[in-house]
Amino acid sequence: METTAFVTGANKGIGYELVRQLANHMDHVFLGARNEELGKKAIHSLGLSNVSFVQVDISDQNSIQSAMDTILGQTNYLDLLINNAGVALDFHISPTELKVEMLREIFNINFFGTFQMIQTFLPLVKKARRGKIVNVTTDMASQTMFDNGDVHPLNILGYNSSKTAINSLTLSFGKEFGEGGPEIFGVTPGFTTTDLNSNAPGGKSTKEGAKVIVKHALSEQNYNGKVLNEKGIIPW
């Protein structure tokens, strides 16, 4: 069987680099992006024959269903679903100044969007020989590490808590899947300089950040229900 992967939020940043790196290891990679023009530009920029564009807005269930229909036109299984799409709207906004409308928007995309992606594409992942779902998270979502000061001290309630919720979602699905699969786990690439953080200096390159995710995504080790960084499993 050919190996297939679908990466959301992949027209730029870590998602784009994930597609590029996975294309070296898998038979076909679907590059997901909300904006069709930018998605197709990314495809053209990559110039890889085993990569194709799929339009998907993870905040819209109809768009998610349409994306699945597009992929079903080429395959009925996915070896790898990487939920990379997300937003960080509250950088430089303190928790006390954060508006509830913005908090809802962040959760609608980051948490509910990821949840809908998993539920919709789970049948395709289950049909793969060893299907995996990887949720891209942040080390700042680890309550233990954030409280201990082991990670960057960005107290951005919306982004961090939405990713903490994704970690909880990962654990819940992992408990349901059990040892019989499929496998679901979260990976934080660590501080990476991208558009998401307004290209803040001092972080990993997108190539380095994506490499962390790809390493775990392609590993023979089973990490079901866990959250990992570049060194391995991290605490909740």
Score class of each variant (00 low, 15 high):
residue 5 A to P: 02
residue 8 T to Q: 05
residue 15 G to K: 03
residue 17 E to K: 08
residue 17 E to I: 07
residue 29 V to F: 15
residue 31 L to M: 10
residue 34 R to I: 09
residue 40 K to Y: 07
residue 43 I to V: 15
residue 52 S to Y: 00
residue 52 S to L: 03
residue 53 F to D: 09
residue 55 Q to R: 13
residue 55 Q to N: 11
residue 57 D to G: 10
residue 58 I to H: 02
residue 61 Q to I: 13
residue 70 T to V: 05
residue 81 L to H: 02
residue 93 I to L: 12
residue 95 P to Y: 07
residue 95 P to D: 11
residue 99 K to D: 12
residue 100 V to I: 14
residue 103 L to K: 03
residue 106 I to R: 01
residue 113 G to N: 05
residue 120 T to P: 01
residue 122 L to A: 06
residue 124 L to Q: 11
residue 127 K to T: 04
residue 127 K to R: 15
residue 128 A to L: 13
residue 141 A to W: 02
residue 142 S to M: 06
residue 148 N to A: 15
residue 155 N to H: 10
residue 156 I to N: 09
residue 157 L to P: 02
residue 171 L to W: 02
residue 171 L to Q: 15
residue 171 L to T: 12
residue 173 F to A: 06
residue 178 G to W: 00
residue 179 E to N: 12
residue 183 E to H: 00
residue 184 I to V: 11
residue 192 T to H: 06
residue 197 N to W: 08
residue 198 S to N: 14
residue 200 A to D: 03
residue 204 K to G: 01
residue 205 S to L: 09
residue 208 E to L: 09
residue 209 G to L: 07
residue 209 G to N: 10
residue 209 G to F: 01
residue 211 K to E: 13
residue 211 K to H: 04
residue 211 K to T: 09
residue 215 K to H: 14
residue 220 E to S: 12
residue 220 E to R: 07
residue 225 G to D: 02
residue 227 V to T: 13
residue 231 K to P: 00
residue 234 I to H: 06
